[in-house]
């Protein structure tokens, strides 16, 4: 780990101004916010992140979970994953989010990790995390070691010739299916960004995971009001029973009307370079009867553009089965 300066922000403005000094908000940032530290500190220890300044934002009043007037819910950026997962309103109205959070990491990590930090969790690609290897996400222009390497865990959707890294988060898959909105405070003021537009495909700039700019601080995440009678579910498949990143996961949020699917929101995890909203699957599902044939059609549509790598062709079928099972389970008691 490199030596770094450590400051504690007491106001939003102070935090934003400090971080605005960084030339980038992405790989190579010289200023980083630290909240739970569960991801950033790990990466600093292995020289993947080398900020010269850390701004501790834990004193900022961003840890509340509050209802919105229209029946939605605002999750403060500093709300801990454990607190969100066990919040009565989340459990009642957004079970998919609670399930996703509880399927990730360990209780100790969830007690520290925050809503905002989880949004910015970086990939677990082994080449990204080892400075002995080339990685365009870590060091633009050096190449992608994962292509043709050990890529079993990596993405099959949204990849580019420069990067195949998976977004590892469970939370973000659920937030994507819930159509959450992210509130950002930046040097030029506040803005709200739908989660669908928050993450970037790697393209030729895999060093940029999100649309954030220097100084931008996530302050909260807003969940829209739940549709009455909606069913939601998060299903995660992995090699072992706990404490592992997803090989494939699916978040579904559905409403049914007399055995037909009225609305459907589908997001996939473990397979995309970003939390993968599948509009193709949603399009198939909407208006069709909730049966195995429909679910399989939706899964086929979701993975139609899959581009597997040398070790992860199995994920195409696994991801389909994951989605079919999630849809089956979510609609079973409808």
């Amino acid at each position: 780990m490199d030596a770094f300066n450590f400051t504690r922000a007491t106001t939003l403005d102070q935090a934003v101004q400090s971080a605005a000094q960084s030339p980038t908000a992405h790989s190579g940032a010289t200023v980083r916010f630290v909240a739970g530290g569960t991801n950033l500190i790990d990466m600093m220890k292995i020289y993947v992140e080398r900020p010269s300044q850390l701004v501790d934002i834990n004193d900022l009043p961003l840890d509340k979970i509050t209802p919105t007037p229209n029946g939605g819910l605002v999750l403060g950026a500093l709300a801990r994953n454990s607190d969100v997962a066990n919040h009565p309103t989340v459990l009642r109205d957004y079970p998919v989010l609670s399930q996703a959070l509880l399927s990730g990491a360990s209780p100790q990590l969830r007690n520290m990790a925050t809503t905002g930090g989880n949004l910015l969790q970086r990939t677990r690609c082994v080449y990204f995390r080892d400075t002995a290897h080339a990685c365009n996400k870590r060091e633009p222009g050096t190449g992608c070691s994962a292509i043709g390497g050990h890529n079993r865990m990596l993405a099959i959707l949204g990849t580019s010739p420069d990067c195949i890294a998976t977004n590892p988060s469970d939370q973000n898959v659920a937030l994507t299916a819930l159509e959450a909105t992210i509130q950002i405070q930046g040097p030029k003021g506040q803005r709200s960004v739908p989660i669908h537009d928050f993450y970037l495909l790697p393209g030729t700039t895999p060093n940029r995971d999100t649309i954030l700019e220097p100084g931008d601080l996530i302050t909260s995440v807003t969940l829209p009001p739940p549709t009455p009678g909606s069913k939601s579910l998060y299903l995660k498949l992995r090699d072992r029973a706990a404490y592992e990143f997803a090989l494939a996961s699916a978040a579904v949020v559905l409403t049914l009307d007399h055995g037909k699917i009225h609305t459907a929101r589908v997001a996939l995890g473990g397979v995309g370079t970003k939390p993968w909203r599948s509009l193709e699957a949603e399009h198939i599902l909407q208006g069709r009867s909730a049966d195995p044939a429909t679910f399989r059609l939706a899964a086929e549509a979701a993975l139609k553009n899959a581009h597997p790598q040398s070790e992860n062709a199995f994920k195409v079928e696994l991801s389909k089965r994951c989605l079919v099972r999630a849809l089956t389970t979510a609609t079973r008691n409808a």
């Binding site: 677990r124 082994v126 865990m153 090699d239 072992r240 029973a241 706990a242 404490y243 592992e244 990143f245």
Partner: peptide, 9 residues
């Protein structure tokens, strides 16, 4: 994370 051993679960 990448050399996976059994957990309590």
């Amino acid at each position: 994370a990448d050399y996976v051993v059994p957990t309590a679960a």
